[in-house]
């Protein structure tokens, strides 16, 4: 896997940037939560590119944000269950 550089990122479209960042985020998120890694990575990719880069550089920040994503997911699932109960 080629190293992620600023020049590589700026030469890519916003969509390609997210793809490149997602490829790097995913294995790290898998370490934190293997079961929900696809969804957590999806949530984290909604952040700005600069914030995602911070997450890639800081395992602590990544863990914090991943935990927040799990909380969001759980809230969303509760909401869906209550909607489906009607």
């Amino acid at each position: 896997q080629e190293p992620l550089t600023i020049s590589l990122l700026v030469s890519a479209s916003p969509h390609e940037q997210k793809q490149m960042l997602g490829v790097r985020l995913f294995p790290l998120v898998q370490i934190i939560d293997k079961k929900l890694a696809e969804k957590i990575t999806g949530i984290l990719l909604e952040f700005d590119t600069s914030e995602i880069i911070y997450m890639l550089e800081s395992p602590e920040l990544l863990r914090t944000m991943a935990n927040k994503a799990v909380t969001l997911l759980q809230g969303h699932q509760v909401q869906e269950v209550s909607m489906n109960s009607f």
Binding site: H15, V23, E38, G42, L45, E46, L73, H76
Partner: peptide, 26 residues
């Protein structure tokens, strides 16, 4: 507001092109 939020969150799968938040309300 059109019920598409049920598709949230978009899932990232390695090797699959990222589609992001298409047609999903914030």
């Amino acid at each position: 507001s059109n019920g598409s939020s049920i598709n949230w969150p978009p899932e990232f799968h390695p090797g699959v092109p990222w589609k992001g938040l298409q047609n999903i309300d914030p």
